[in-house]
């Protein structure tokens, strides 16, 4: 059993390699938010209020093309639904904690913090015993705070740089490239391919739909296609 300080430090240390990918991501977000017409204060606030990279990118992109608030909200939230899986998988390890701990750790539960913490939880002393509490939640706090502070600072740097970049540099295209970089390595099997391809094709066909609803229709078709192929195999 380790002390709270050891767990906290180990969480930060485990998070460090992931921060290498997060820093450019945060900076690009800052640049793009300004390019999409979001004021600097709101762009920075979004990194604290939402604190979820891909949904911030999507909200930014949709805001830039003038999508209505309801479409922006729905899409950003749908993208974050995967966090429900993280919440479910990490819940057993947090069940003995006080409510304020649960709230804080839920706020910090990003892809990156979850990834390192769940493997730590699974690899160390299996059962959680509420009568003999351990300090492993400090690990998630360390990883989460390391990511949080990096995300805020890299956003700020991006906003600062974004203010000096002319639009002729086509920097808005880095958003599509970022999505490609996340999307392509995730296509590990046929159902995932089916989901991606069908959603992409429908998005182009339904592009003219009002209120950018084509995006939501396309996403639903993609999810359905993925499920269909999965149930067949």
């Amino acid at each position: 059993m380790h002390s709270s300080r050891q767990e906290f430090a180990a969480g930060i240390k485990a998070e460090l390699p992931l921060l290498v990918g997060v820093i450019p991501f945060g900076m690009i977000y800052g640049v793009l938010a300004l390019a999409a017409g979001i004021p600097p204060g709101a762009a920075q606030a979004m990194s604290a209020v939402v604190f979820a990279g891909s949904s911030q990118f999507i909200a930014t992109q949709l805001f830039g093309v003038g999508a209505p608030a309801m479409v922006i909200f729905t899409t950003a939230v749908v993208v974050n639904l995967r966090h429900a899986l993280y919440s479910a998988s990490i819940a057993p390890y947090l069940r003995c904690l006080k409510p304020y701990w649960k709230v804080a750790l839920a706020y910090l539960l990003t892809d990156e913090a979850y990834a390192v913490s769940i493997s730590h939880f699974q690899q160390t002393e299996g059962e959680v015993d509420c009568l003999r509490p351990d300090q492993r939640h400090w690990y998630l706090l360390g990883a989460g705070l390391a990511l949080w502070s990096t995300w805020q600072v890299s956003t700020a740097v991006g906003i600062f740089l974004g203010a000096q970049v002319p639009s002729s540099w086509s920097l808005d295209f880095t958003l599509a490239l970022t999505f490609i970089a996340i999307l392509v390595p995730a296509l590990k099997d046929r159902p995932a391919w089916a989901a991606a391809l069908s959603a992409g094709v429908v998005a182009v066909l339904a592009y003219a739909l009002a209120y950018r609803l084509g995006l939501i229709v396309a996403s639903l078709v993609g999810i359905a296609a993925g499920l269909l192929l999965e149930s067949k195999s």
């Binding site: 996340i182 999307l183 998005a203 996403s219 499920l227």
Partner: peptide
């Protein structure tokens, strides 16, 4: 749980395809 797995590929390519093709 099964449906959630397909959310990222579906949403991301629904954004990327029009960006590239249109």
């Amino acid at each position: 749980r099964m449906a959630l797995r397909f959310v990222p590929p579906a949403v991301l390519s629904a954004i990327v395809f029009p960006e590239l093709l249109m």
